[in-house]
Structure formats: structure tokens, C-alpha cells
Design a protein around this nucleic acid. Structure first.
Lengths: 219, 219
DNA sequence: ATTTTTTTGTGAACTTTTTCACAAGCCGTC
DNA sequence: GACGGCTTGTGAAAAAGTTCACAAAAAAAT
């Protein structure tokens, strides 16, 4: 039997990232058409973690397995979708129709995974009015109005750092609940709004640190 | 006086990410032309952390401040560059000249921060031979040869998941030490090679989780 | 029907990371 | 050159996160 989430304590960030991984692994598992059941051991092997960790992570939200058997693949997949909030479609706005914006817009996994880009914005008069697939690029000046009209919940911010803070604040005014930020600055937003930063530079620096360090330590 | 790194223990991943932040903050600080000195308190305020954390992070590598005064901005900036391994130029290869690859290639911070893209690869005959600025797109078939000839140390992998593992393995064969991976799979590489994953889907799921959870908890 | 085998869920032990708190050090002033 | 106001560097304490280890449960075997 599946038990309901016990009580929602604070969940570690790292747990959430692993849950994403487990979901991905389960989907792979399904598409490979293997067993209909999977053990924490097998899930751990795919996810660069341990069986105990898998079980502990899941135990935060309830009890989804059968002792002696493991987890029903499709069932756990559904549970994880629900937990991660991807058992529905999210209405997404893309702010910035430059290089990064355009790359994201056409990112295949994007649509597939329940993120529906219903509005695109840019400040460049050259771009405003152009169509990208089903959506027309709108003027950033109309941001609040359009975000509200389209009932956008999540925005992807793909603009230069100099414009990011102002646009973020305006998106928040328009009722947006989450921001995926590609601008290389720390956004200041109210606590109720969630920001995730994607920082290319930071990732590269983590790489060069690790490499430099490794070289320095061994020699 | 600046003391040297005491001994290199294992440094937490989270510390490294914060060091990147501090470096960014110091650079901002400089370009704003404020005081030539900064306290852990001020640095913390910009970085969403605490003064104690800043000091502890830095203390892993030595002792860079003056009691009663704080840190010399330009000096700490240099130290951080050295620690993060960005006090030099890295020769980078870009594998995949699609949407994401092209967006990354023209990402402004990229060049500026000492990452020099010296080779671009794609498997599409349409693209091979085209020029992007100074570099010519090469055939992925020649990956090892070109990576070696160009003495590439870091690659950015911006190809579909299906091709990623094979290309990663070949890059490793060619002596690459770090991989920034945009493909939505977990790469298997030898321990000596460092991989950083950038997963758009995972970031989006972290967002929808946080939002969903927040709503569910309060009501 | 009992025993064996398997694998979960979870408190307790352990490890890692963060925060606290304060002595030590630096600068300017009297 | 001692005093006072600041701010670092750092052990020690606290908190957070991971791993261990085992009882509980479910299926398979005898």
C-alpha cells in the first residue's frame, strides 16, 4: 500500500536533485522495457548514490515500496512526478529572445516535460512581433500585462545582467512564483518567490578549481 | 601578510560555489569603485551567506585579511582567481554546434573570463567547415586528433544524450581533464576526469517542487 | 504451514557543514 | 606607548545530511 506523505518537514536541496534523477532513471527503465519492478539498489546504481540514500530520500514523502519486492516502476514514477510537481503543465514565460533564450525555447525536453512556453519577451524592436512557432515575441514593456493575461507561473530569465533585476521584480509583481535565472547576478526577490540560478561561469570555475587542485595536490 | 594555503584538505563543493560568488562580488565592488577594502560582513551581504561562512571558506586556503580592517579588494580578488584556477587561460573545446553550442560560443562572459574556445565540433556535414569567428567547425570524427593538436583541457559537451557518452569517452582518451556536460545523462568517466552537469530539467523540477511544496504546506 | 530469501523503512551512529563566540591582531587616537 | 574600536581566524558547539544495521513485511521455497 502506498502511504501518504507523513508531514512535510524541510527537504534537503540535495534530496530534491536526487529525486529528479530517480524520475529520469525510472523513465529510462520503462523505455527499456525491463522488469516492472525496481529495487533501491538498482535505482542507486544508476544515480551515483547508495540504496540507503534512495530509501531515505523517498521516506520523506511516504512509503512507496513493497518489502521483499522493491518499487513498482510506473507507480513510483507517478509518485515522483506528483512530488516534484510535474504531474501537470506549467505555464512558462521566456524573458529574453537572444541566443540563450532561443536555445532554451527549442530545447526538446522542455515541451515534453510539461513546461509550456506561452509567452516570449524581448526589448529589441527588431524582434518584437516575430513569431516563434505558436508564440509571438512581445515587447518587454508589456511584461506584467502579458504575464498576467497568460497566467504565467514560471519565468526563464535569459537577459543580460544589467536588465535582469528590474525584469525579475516586474515578473514578481505580475504574480510569477518561480524564476529560472540565467543572468550572472544574484536576484533580490521576496521570500515567497523561488529562484534557481544557472551560472555557466560558476560551473566552469568549479571545473577549473577541481582540475587545478587535483594537479597541485598530487605533485 | 598573506599566508600560503595551509594544507589542501578536501574542500566542500558548496565552498567552491561560494568562492565563485565572492570573486564575482569583488569584481563588482571594484567596478563600482568603492572602498579598496571589504569586510567579511559586506561580502556576506552580497552573497546570501554569513560573515562567519565567508571567513571559514577563505580560511581553508590561507589567511588573506587584516584584523580590524578587512580584505584588500584587489588582493583578495587575485587570490581567489588563483585558488579557482582562473588566473590563466583555459583551452576549451566545444562539442556540438547546435542551438546550445552556438549560444554558449557567443556567451560574452566566456571569453572574458579566461576560457578560450579553440575548437568546435559537429557531426553534421552541413556545419562542418563553416567558420565561427576565428574557429572552423571540425568533424566530430576527428575529435581526438584535433583536441590533442589544440592541447584542449576542457570540453563543453552540448550534444544529444544519445551521442554524449561516446564523445565524452573519446575526449577523455584525447587527454581532456574536465567536461561541462549539457546532455541529460550521467556520464561515465575515469575518476581523474571531472564532470560538471548542467541540467535544465533538474533546475526546472527543483523550481516546481519548491513552488508546489510551498503551496501545499501553507494551506 | 513453516522456513528461507529478499528488500523495505527507519532509528541510531556517524560524518560533514554551518554557526557561534571569542582571543588575537591591526589601526588610529590620546 | 597604552587604550578603544573593529574585524579576522579558528576551535568548539550545533545543525544538517548520510550511512549503518536491523526489525518488519512480503513473496518464494520446502
Amino acid at each position: 500500500m502506498i502511504t501518504r506523505p507523513p508531514v512535510s518537514r524541510r527537504i534537503p536541496e540535495s534530496t530534491v536533485r536526487r529525486l529528479s534523477h530517480y524520475l529520469r532513471s525510472l523513465e529510462e527503465f520503462e523505455s527499456e522495457g525491463g522488469e516492472s519492478t525496481v529495487s533501491s539498489e538498482e535505482l542507486a546504481a544508476r544515480g551515483q548514490t547508495t540504496a540507503a540514500q534512495v530509501r531515505k530520500d523517498l521516506s520523506h514523502f511516504g512509503s512507496f515500496g513493497k518489502r521483499g519486492l522493491g518499487y513498482q516502476v510506473d507507480e513510483l514514477r507517478n509518485q515522483l512526478r506528483q512530488i516534484l510537481g510535474v504531474d501537470r503543465t506549467w505555464r512558462v514565460g521566456l524573458i529574453g529572445a537572444g541566443r540563450i533564450g532561443s536555445a532554451l525555447f527549442s530545447y526538446p525536453d522542455f515541451q515534453v516535460r510539461g513546461y509550456d512556453c506561452v509567452a516570449v519577451f524581448d526589448a529589441d524592436p527588431e524582434k518584437i512581433g516575430r513569431r516563434w512557432g505558436d508564440v509571438t515575441i512581445r515587447d518587454s514593456a508589456d511584461l506584467e500585462e502579458v504575464l498576467r493575461a497568460e497566467r504565467v507561473e514560471l519565468v526563464i530569465l535569459a537577459v543580460p545582467g544589467s536588465a535582469a533585476q528590474e525584469l525579475a521584480a516586474r515578473a514578481v509583481d505580475a504574480g510569477v512564483k518561480g524564476i529560472l535565472n540565467f543572468a550572472p547576478i544574484r536576484l533580490r526577490v521576496p521570500d515567497k518567490v523561488r529562484v534557481e540560478d544557472v551560472s555557466l561561469v560558476m560551473e566552469l570555475e568549479a571545473l577549473s578549481f577541481a582540475i587545478t587542485q587535483a594537479g597541485g595536490a598530487s605533485e
